[in-house]
Each structure stands twice: as structure tokens, then as C-alpha cells.
Amino acid sequence: MSRARIGRALMALCGHRARESAELTDSDWRELDALADQHRLRPFLHGRLTRGEIGSAVPAAIAASWQETHRANGIAMLAQRRALLQAGRVLAEEGIAAVALKGSALAWTVWPAPAERIMRDIDLLVGEEEAPAAYAALRRSGWAAPDLPREDLAGMAGSQAHLPPLHSPEGVMCELHAHVWGEAPLPGSTMPLADDAGLLSRAAHDEALGAAIPSAEDMLAHLVVHAACSHLLNVGPMALVDIDLWCTQRSVDWEAFWKRAAEHGFERPAVLIFALVDRWRRPGFLAHSGTPASPDDDLLVEAEMLLVQDLDARKDVSALASAAAGQFGGRIGQHPLDRAERPSGGLGRAGQLAQRAWSLGRSALDGDTRRDALATARLQKWMEG
């Protein structure tokens, strides 16, 4: 399978097995570069290349594209950090505590350079009851977002992980989270328990970022659940890099982490993710973290391929995985967040559903997509025990 070979070569370039990519042809490199672009890894690969962590086998044209993406992302990261600090100040003036999540907290604290980590948006967690006021405060300060009644915002804060996206005056997107994670992606599945209030109370100001970030254990739990449970590994190899860099530069209380993982229901997802970190990023990670078990090789092989899946097929993979698991639930009405941003009438929604049905039918005929769907269904079943 070409996709498997190229996908594993990309995974290797991101960690300790980088030399395994030395035998790639020019065509292979072009395919790998396209996959790296899709998974937002070009700037990181440029950093690794300049530090001598990859070697000299990368074709010059591809290395140049990595360098250019790194430069462009460096500029974007400055704008995103500025927007993050602006949002934090606005909320602080309202007496609302906010905590930076995921890339917003990682890029400036543990990555080799912020320019190496591409972020689609900035993520801020606030208390559920304060989320409507936080949203309104940002809109008053010039952030663009749908003008929604407070009761609608309160309803979304109670049922969704985040409110409709806001955009800073410079165009930086922010997801204002009322919960650290939301509902399961597959119908009939469950999510680990979330400790939103605890995360907010344990967060601390980070001087390098200039904003509050989660504690070591809270951040690690969030990264594990986000990658394994919320997204079923369709987040790409960057998830392994995030976790490895966080754990090597932060002091994690492993006993406390595993106790909470068992109590809150994310022990198996953590075991899986840590096994992948051990295999592709840092040998010995399982032993260092005190991981209580290790998945079998068959599951790890499937998990690796899910990390480098075609991101354009993610929705179809989830739908086919639901069907494979015997769950046929679907959303006929428009999602609340989509409705808030781009409301569509009956005809418009019918057109959206018809387009989804056409895409799903096409994906069902694609071998890679079918394999990813079946692997996703098996992954979900394994994580739930």
C-alpha cells in the first residue's frame, strides 16, 4: 500500500525513526510533502531539518517549501498570540478567567519555536455560566461573530464544547470553550468525564505565553482525550509531538494522572496514545510514564494509519464507522453551531444532505476510506473496553 508506506515515512520524519525515510524516490517525496501539508507538519519538518534531525535526503525544492511555510507561519503565530493576549485582557476586565488550550498553550511554551506549530485558531476555556458574557464582551471589543440572544448562547454553552467562532479585528479565529471537550463523535459512544471547573481552578499563568495554561496533568489529559476520543486519531502525527514535548518539559505527576485516567474513563485512550509516542517519537516513553499496559500490534498498526488518513474524508470515515458499529444515527437538522453561523432553510438543508449522501457513497467505494472506517469502529470499541 503506497499510502501506508508514505504515511509511515512521514511519521518517521517526525520522531526518532527519521532515517527510515532515506530510500524515498522523488515521487514518494512529493506524495509525502502533500501529506505533510495536509497535516500541518511542513514548518515542524523544516525545524527538524535545520537542526539536523532528519538528514540531507530531502529534495531541495521540498526543503524550500518547508522553509517558506515556516516563515509564513511565524508571521501568523505572532498575530495569533497578539489576538490571544487581547482576548485575555478583554475577559480579565470583565472578571472572567480564561485558560489557553491545545496549540494556544503549547506553541509558545514547549515547542522548539512557535513558528513550527501551525494553529487553525486559538482556543480559550471559560466557565460555562460565564461563556455568554465572555462571548458578548469580545463582540463589543471588535471581534466578529453572530449576534445571538443570551439565552441561545447559554443553551449552546450547556450543550456544545464551544460557542460559534469569533474573529479578531485582524481575522484570527477564536473558539471560546465552555467545556474542555464535547460529545463523542460516533453515535452511541461515550466520552470520558470532564473536569472543567477543576481545570480552570488548577490553571496557572505562564510567563512565556503571557496567559493561563492548564496544569501538567490537565493538559496531558486534554491532549489524550482530544486526539483519541474526540477525534479518533484524525488529528495527525502532531498529536504525538505535542504530548512528547509537553511531557519532556513539564513535571507530570504520573500516579495522579493514571488515577484520574482510571476514574474518569480515559485510561485506555492514554495507553494507546502513549504506545504510539513510544513507537514513533521517544523510545522508553511507556516505561517512563508508568503506562499500565500496551495495546497489541494489530491495533497499533491500524492506529498509525488513522493518524495519517486523508483529512478530506474525515466526515465520511466517521459516518461509515458508525454504520460498521451498528449505529445509524444522523443529524437531519442543521448543527446548532452551523445554524448560528450560516442558517439554511429547508431547501438549503436538503441540498446539504444530498451532497453528504453523494460524498458518502463515493467514499464507500474507496478502499482506504473503508479501511479507515472499519479501523475507527474497532478503535472506538477497544477504547470503551
Score class of each variant (00 low, 15 high):
314 R>E: 10
301 V>K: 08
294 S>H: 12
307 L>D: 00
287 A>N: 11
293 A>F: 12
287 A>T: 13
308 V>S: 00
310 D>F: 05
306 L>V: 05
287 A>Q: 13
289 S>E: 04
296 D>E: 13
307 L>A: 02
301 V>T: 12
316 D>C: 11
287 A>M: 12
309 Q>C: 14
304 E>H: 06
300 L>W: 04
316 D>W: 03
295 P>K: 04
315 K>S: 11
317 V>I: 13
317 V>Q: 01
301 V>H: 03
292 P>Y: 05
289 S>H: 04
312 D>V: 09
314 R>F: 09
304 E>C: 08
292 P>A: 13
303 A>S: 12
311 L>P: 03
295 P>L: 06
301 V>G: 07
317 V>S: 01
297 D>L: 11
287 A>V: 15
299 L>E: 01
304 E>S: 15
307 L>V: 06
310 D>G: 10
290 G>V: 09
294 S>N: 08
298 D>H: 11
298 D>P: 02
308 V>T: 05
291 T>H: 01
299 L>K: 01
294 S>V: 12
313 A>K: 02
291 T>A: 15
291 T>M: 05
302 E>F: 05
312 D>G: 15
287 A>G: 11
304 E>K: 05
292 P>R: 10
291 T>W: 02
301 V>A: 09
288 H>K: 15
299 L>V: 09
312 D>P: 02
303 A>I: 03
295 P>C: 11
290 G>N: 08
308 V>D: 00
303 A>L: 03
308 V>R: 02
300 L>Q: 02
